[in-house]
Amino acid sequence: MTFGIERAGNEGMTPVRATGDPISLEALVRDPVRFRTWYDEALPRVYRYLLARCGDEGLAEEITQEAFVEAIRNRRRFEGRSDPVTWICAIGRNRLVDHVRHDMRGAARHLRLINARTDLESNAWRESDEREAVQQALTKLLPDQRLALMLRYLDQLPVREIAGLLHRSESATESMLSRARESFRAAYEGQTDA
């Protein structure tokens, strides 16, 4: 079995190992030198995955730490059928969903702070590339909207699975995704038209 997130987690990422050989996390941990090498490659991949989906460096670090700790604590249960990084990304994704679902008020407050900071610091965005316009547009979304948008269009998860993760009905999730799309489109096109 694989996660939709695993496919997405691998997109654009350099595999830790080029072959399809299973990696034993337990064996890695037993060898401090190999473990350090693996960690140095794995950490940016997990962090990148989470940062793209939440847009908050502090939160991405917090959840990256939780995901790694959880993975190492339970390393003997990892069966090596996939890249350990995709497994850790999956743990991180679930932690992120929990965070967004259970802390929407705090997350919304945090989002406002991010928006304020971004507005102040991004005077030069008009001169930047499309990627920065995308990042700027995403800051206009609520945390759950951003996450749902990412799960749908970056991770390509089906709506039913996103609805399950967010504990919403499918139609409510479709509705939220539609609002997220519209908000993103308005924010993005508003910037690129300017």
Binding site: A52, T64, V134
Partner: peptide, 13 residues
């Protein structure tokens, strides 16, 4: 999807 992929870029903590 294409737009969102642009922000899935290398990032280092």
């Amino acid at each position: 999807t294409q737009l969102l992929r642009q922000i899935d870029e290398p990032a280092y903590p």
